[in-house]
Design a protein around this nucleic acid. Structure first.
Lengths: 348, 348
DNA sequence: TTTAGCACTCTGATCCCCGGAGTGCTAAAC
DNA sequence: GTTTAGCACTCCGGGGATCAGAGTGCTAAA
């Protein structure tokens, strides 16, 4: 038995319908929507589709529901690639007029925007290079017991913080220290930074070393944190609106997974901007009954960000995919235009 | 009719019991727990307590449930102020070994810790002074089209960012600019900053002004953002574990409120470190059926932070209050010890 | 190959019933 | 006067039983 064109059409109708109603769809409804054939004919076809594995039957006398395999076919071939309406595009871009500053705040802002736009939980991540390095250091003395460390990292990211010093430092020592930092502790991995710190230990006076190590360990921490993939999830509560998550336990389980999971959320292949994972295609057990649509965007030259949307297998793939890639493109544009965007206009 | 000591004891037992079971508690159970009197006696007392408004009866033949008034009395007089066990204190302190850096990241970390410790949703906020001011500026040239702005604000907070400049700037112009910034734009409100910007407009060359206004508007934005109370909520999903929020709609409603509400969450009085709001004592409608325990802690000299816990009226007030104040004290200590803590130890 | 017809199945809503928990009241006991 | 035992009563919640509706599969005819 093979998958005729008509069978595909029927499958499409089933998925389209089920996506919106969450109720098993029956032969009569399909016949009505297709026209030209009677429900009996449809029933025959449906039986075939079940046998082929594209549909499932919750119980003998219920309508049909798409199987993961059915969704997969739908996503690959049947789904009408949606274009974003002008209105939507505009809305997306408007919602991306974020006051960005720190990257992670930006992420959660964008995540909220996406989530409210697709009505599913969303996760965002910025995947830095495995190893960020410092590009440049500055020390700004505040008083004799404290100074501001400013560190510029890859991708023009800047971090700074006030550091209380454990001992008094003469003003002129700062410049020596800065030189040392810039000459020996830039453009190397954090691991190596620690090594070099060891090496210089006996080459400089002890109190200078103390100070140096304070700065370096701040730097190491910041770099590691920046390189580490931080995942922010937003809009988990949207789950509760879905009939498949009305059960509090189920919802709680998935929410916990989303809140806790730091690493094991799906990521698109390096060469493609978007990936759709349907039900059991997910590796994590917690996602076995859900689908994930995840898109990537570019941050600067060598960083990549992720936006993922988690929903029931009965997710509106076409819409979600369209909107998500709209966002991803928007974000790429945002980051591409300028590393971290200054104000285009001052207040008038 | 008056509130005898025995009535109070009975009320206490009812609340204690109901807090843990979420089931109306009957006379027999109370009698068993009190000893000495029979259930019939208790029934008489219960009837009185209902009449006095401390208890409620879901329906005629059910046990009793505390009313808000009952909880209030319980909280004010009856509840055994819990001491944290050594074990708990230690756990709290351990969980406050946060890698803090940016304030808001710290908040969400601490929020998560609290939430996992009390098993209720938690909100955290840092309430800055109404008006933060800049204390000092630095500009670090990167190349001729970009520089790093570093701004030190009240409370020793530091912000920095790379700024792309709209026009080329000679190196020596930077120092002029910094002087201008430090002499004219520090220690004043953002409103005044904007005014001064206007004023200097015709006193300096146009391109210098362009640059200046770029920096100032960055500063204004950062200051306003820092002064603005940012509320972070965590652990909302814990609601789903509670019988009173098994209903998805209810849970969703409250979660949405917690996620969206930026300003209208309860705050303790200025002079007291902790406040308990029971059910209808809350102003917001969305919290009418819930209770809130909120504690404050000090950040630096003139900032105050909040930790609030939201739960059902049937909240375990004693435990929550104890743990919450444990956290609040921990945070106060953390911030008090040093503005923003450097590493105490370098890596050994 | 499609369709009409029909008997059959299964679900989900509704109703009913009933046991159990708990009450309020009364009358006796302390 | 307070406490207690006893008892009738109320109400909830769970467990069938019932039933209509939706949908199916199959057969036989078009």
């Amino acid at each position: 038995m093979e998958l005729t064109e008509r069978k595909k059409q029927i499958l499409k109708v089933v998925v389209d319908d089920y996506i919106h109603t969450a109720e098993p769809v029956g032969s009569k409804a399909i016949a009505a929507r297709m026209g030209g054939v009677s429900s009996a004919t449809i029933r025959n076809e449906l039986a075939d589709l079940v046998e082929l594995g594209y549909l499932e039957q919750p119980h003998t006398s219920a309508g049909r529901v798409p199987s993961p395999k059915g969704y997969r076919l739908y996503v690959n071939e049947l789904m009408e690639r949606q274009k974003l309406s002008l209105d939507e595009t505009e809305k997306i871009n408007r919602s991306l007029q974020l006051k960005m500053e720190e990257l992670d705040r930006l992420l959660s802002q964008a995540g909220r925007a996406v989530s409210s736009f697709v009505n599913y939980p969303t996760y965002m991540a910025a995947a830095g290079k495995k190893s960020m390095t410092a590009q440049r250091f500055e020390l700004l003395p505040v008083d004799e017991r404290s100074c501001i460390v400013v560190m510029m990292m890859d991708g023009n990211r800047v971090k700074s913080q006030l550091l209380r010093l454990q001992l008094k430092v003469e003003m002129d020592q700062f410049s020596i220290l800065v030189n040392l930092l810039n000459s020996h502790f830039t453009k190397i991995s954090t691991k190596e930074m620690n090594l070099r710190l060891m090496n210089v230990a006996d080459q400089i006076p002890p109190q200078a070393f103390l100070l140096l190590s304070q700065v370096v360990s701040y730097a190491v921490e910041s770099l590691e944190e920046a390189g580490h993939r931080e995942i922010v999830t937003t809009g988990a509560r949207e789950l509760l609106k879905l009939p498949e998550f009305r059960d509090a336990d189920k919802a709680h389980e998935l929410m916990s997974f989303l809140a806790d999971s730091k690493e094991n959320l799906p990521v698109p292949e390096d060469d493609s901007p978007m990936k759709i994972l349907i039900g059991p295609e997910n590796v994590s057990d917690a996602l076995k009954d859900t689908s994930v649509v995840v898109a990537s965007y570019d941050i600067g030259d060598d960083m990549r960000g992720l936006i993922g949307v988690v929903g029931p297998t009965r997710m509106d793939y076409a819409t979600v995919a369209a909107r998500l890639s709209g966002f991803a493109e928007g974000l790429t544009r945002l980051f591409g235009k300028q590393e971290l965007p200054p104000k285009e206009d001052t207040k008038e």
